[in-house]
């Protein structure tokens, strides 16, 4: 029965991933939907990282995860905004993060 749980979950996640790759789905995003979707990566990636840095409790008090997160995130944000190479941004801000965290 546990295997049924695993296969059931695998089916659900797979259908969510494959659905719009199926040719039998006749829906084709028009120009407007395509324009909406062009913002999907900015929106979803921010939705994933923001709550790691900014924490909110159930009475709506916002707090930072810590000084290490605050400074290293700011550095990553500034460097990225200046269009510094992504790899350098990741290495530099992660280095700053661990230096603050462990020293």
């Amino acid at each position: 029965m546990t295997w049924a749980l695993i296969f059931g979950m695998a089916t659900i996640t797979y259908v969510n991933r494959y659905l719009f790759f199926a040719r039998s789905i006749s829906y084709r995003p028009g120009a407007r939907v395509q324009r909406l979707l062009s913002y999907s990566s900015y929106a979803v990636l921010t939705a994933i990282w923001a709550p790691i840095v900014f924490e909110v409790n159930s009475s709506y008090d916002v707090s930072l995860a810590g000084l290490d997160y605050a400074l290293a995130t700011s550095l990553a944000a500034i460097l990225s905004y200046l269009r510094i190479n992504s790899l350098i941004v990741v290495l530099a801000s992660t280095a700053v993060f661990f230096i603050i965290r462990f020293f």
Partner: peptide, 27 residues
């Protein structure tokens, strides 16, 4: 933190475009 750094590096270069800024702030 590597998730934070990577995802910022992938998106903030386009922050000059106002719709992208809005997508980031609202989301």
């Amino acid at each position: 933190f590597a998730i934070v750094a990577t995802f910022i590096a992938m998106t903030f270069g386009e922050l000059r475009r106002f719709p992208v800024l809005l997508a980031v702030v609202v989301s």
